[in-house]
């Protein structure tokens, strides 16, 4: 079991509560860090210095990324994650309302690990979150650890 935190990038407070509730229901004990827009997500990952060569600030076990977000959208966040040497292997799952073609194409083109559309039905939603959690945190073999990662959990803005 990977005990690093889960980064949930979600601007809708209802979805935030429901996602965390669903994760807890399935005994996923990882800390959930919430970023409410793309800028917060990038701040959490990279800190102030976003240059591609500087070391990253936090390395979550999994990123659940909404697409339609204030300031910087999920697609752009994904692009920056994939562009950085130290975050390019991070597991990123799009967890979003839309199944529009262009979102799917953009996400997969940028190398997203999974694309899950949030179901309206809560029981289905709970099942989807459970499957994401168990697959990416338990079943799937994580990419090799890198050296020199700082684990500064105090920097996370929101903890639940």
């Amino acid at each position: 079991m990977n005990h690093k935190p889960i980064l949930l990038v979600e601007d809708n407070p209802d979805d935030e509560i429901l996602t965390i509730r669903a994760l807890k229901q399935h005994n996923i004990v990882n800390e959930v860090v919430v970023a409410r827009d793309g800028v917060e997500a990038l701040d959490y990952l990279f800190g102030e210095n976003r240059s591609e060569s500087s070391p990253i600030k936090n390395e979550p076990a999994l990123i659940l990324l909404d697409i339609k977000l204030p300031k910087i959208d999920g697609i752009e966040v994904l692009k920056r994650i994939r562009a950085h040497e130290q975050t390019k292997l991070l597991r990123v799952v799009m967890l979003t309302s839309s199944n529009e073609q262009r979102d799917l194409i953009a996400s997969y083109t940028l190398g997203v690990n999974s694309y899950v559309r949030k179901p309206v039905d809560f029981s289905e939603f709970v099942r989807a979150v459970k499957e994401i959690g168990s697959y990416w945190l338990l079943l799937n073999e994580a990419p090799p650890n890198r050296n020199g990662v700082t684990r500064d959990k105090t920097a996370s803005r929101t903890k639940r």
Binding site: N12, I67, K68, S97, K118, P119, F122
Partner: peptide
């Protein structure tokens, strides 16, 4: 696609 389904959820 993005916004109308969220409140329903």
């Amino acid at each position: 696609s993005h916004d109308l389904r969220s409140p329903l959820r």
